[in-house]
């Protein structure tokens, strides 16, 4: 039986204009053998809905221009409401103020990746939170 690939759903919030980061991360994850679904710009409820439909293990959010915490709270509230907050792992990449990092972790983002992150850190980080030790 072949092992199921880690499935990562990538999205930006509605107004984000940048996508270089998320395209980069998508290619890193694919090269590492993960399955990647990129859904573009969406509201928090659309992101959770897609993740449920896709049966994703991980949701990766990109945020470059602010709002990571406020929209993150909304994302987590909806995930909780739909009963998937514990099953799905949440990862955030981009630029966000240092003083928000603790709050971002507390609300449920298990990994935060800033512009200096290396491909290895990203791949290993995601493997470790989904419990894949291969």
């Amino acid at each position: 039986m072949s092992e199921r690939k880690i499935k990562v759903l990538l999205s930006a919030y509605s107004l984000e204009t940048h996508s270089r980061g998320i395209i980069t991360v998508a290619s890193i994850l694919r090269d590492a053998g993960m399955e990647v679904v990129y859904i573009g710009n969406n509201r928090p409820e659309e992101i959770i809905e897609s993740a449920i439909q896709e049966d994703a293990d991980v949701i990766g959010i990109t945020s470059m221009c602010g709002g990571a915490l406020q929209l993150g709270r909304e994302l987590m509230r909806i995930a909780d409401e739909k009963g998937v907050k514990d099953r799905i792992k949440f990862v955030l990449g981009g630029i966000f103020p240092p003083e928000e990092e603790t709050d971002l972790k507390n609300i449920g983002f298990e990994l935060l990746f800033k512009p200096g992150a290396t491909s290895e850190e990203i791949v290993e980080g995601i493997k470790s939170i989904v419990g894949d030790t291969s």
């Binding site: 919030y13 509201r43 990571a68 915490l69």
Partner: peptide
Amino acid sequence: EAIGQVGT
């Protein structure tokens, strides 16, 4: 949609 991003 603008929550958290006004003036950032």
